[in-house]
């Protein structure tokens, strides 16, 4: 193996390892949530391998289990995954000179934690083999860790009692993701408007209210950003 690749892989793994432990409860909870919703072991792990995105899986699960229309399931998943478009745009320069197949693998493996920890260094390093190693090693580690502990949750869900309201763990997981996102005021506005609009519009057919609420939340967040920056005189 290319020594620069190995060097990059070691550095990437080392910097991501502490944070990766945080994936374990998410993965277990996701596994339990998939099973509690009514999926079989095979279906739960199949979805997990195909999608490999806890938020999109837990977020679309109620719609899927309710037999909602496919276009609504797709749109909801897209809304939940829009952050990846931003991540992908932000990290893209780190893959300059990396072959197409490897870039496609890198896209499949893109997760929040690796993006957060690795992007800055990735964009600063000139050697492309080093860069690819630095990204792919922690990404594969995150993938393996995630699949393993979702399996633990999927298998464990069967031995856990049924009347413990375990499906609420998925809601907790989504809230825990929401807290750091809402750390600035426009983000908080987007979340509040999105959440309350979703309650107000819950009577709309086909759960269309969820999509309308997301659009309202985005618009409110964007408007709040404009208003707040005008007031403070910042750009």
């Amino acid at each position: 193996m290319n020594p620069r690749f190995v060097e990059g892989a070691r550095a990437g793994f080392k910097v991501f390892l502490p944070l990766s432990i945080g994936l374990i409860p998410w993965a277990i909870v996701t596994g339990v949530a998939l099973r509690s919703a009514g999926l079989s072991i095979g279906e739960a792990m199949g979805m997990n391998l195909m999608v490999f995105a806890g938020v999109a899986q837990i977020g679309t699960l109620p719609l899927i289990m309710a037999g909602a229309p496919l276009w609504l399931i797709g749109l909801t998943a897209l809304a939940l995954n829009l952050r990846f478009v931003i991540f992908s745009a932000a990290i893209a320069r780190g893959f300059d000179g990396v072959p197409l197949v490897r870039r496609m693998l890198s896209g499949y493996l893109l997760v929040d934690g690796v993006f957060a920890v690795c992007t800055q260094r990735l964009l600063a390093e000139p050697d492309r083999d080093w860069r690819f190693g630095y990204y792919i090693a922690p990404s594969l580690w995150a993938w393996g860790l995630w699949q393993s502990f979702v399996l633990v949750g999927v298998l464990g869900a069967g031995v856990l009692p049924q009347d413990w309201s375990l499906e609420f763990m998925a809601t907790i997981a989504l809230m825990v993701l929401l807290v750091p996102l809402s750390s600035n005021r426009p983000m908080l506005v987007a979340a509040l408007v999105g959440g309350l609009a979703s309650v107000a519009l819950r009577g709309m057919p086909l759960k269309l209210g969820v999509i309308a609420a997301i659009v309202a939340g985005i618009a409110a967040g964007f408007a709040a950003q404009r208003i707040l920056s005008d007031r403070s005189g910042a750009v």
């Binding site: 938020v55 977020g59 109620p62 909801t76 809304a79 939940l80 829009l82 952050r83 478009v85 931003i86 745009a89 809601t171 989504l174 809230m175 993701l177 929401l178 996102l181 809402s182 426009p186 983000m187 908080l188 987007a190 979340a191 509040l192 408007v193 999105g194 959440g195 309350l196 609009a197 979703s198 309650v199 819950r202 969820v210 609420a213 997301i214 659009v215 309202a216 939340g217 985005i218 409110a220 967040g221 964007f222 950003q225």
Partner: peptide, 27 residues
């Protein structure tokens, strides 16, 4: 991606998560 689009999309995850969670705990 044009900058205004990137800016607006930043709010999608928070809005989407809240739109799913809030009805679940309030209704």
């Amino acid at each position: 991606l044009p900058q205004p689009v990137q800016d607006a999309l930043r709010y999608a995850p928070a809005a989407a998560l809240a739109a799913i969670v809030v009805p679940d705990v309030l209704v």
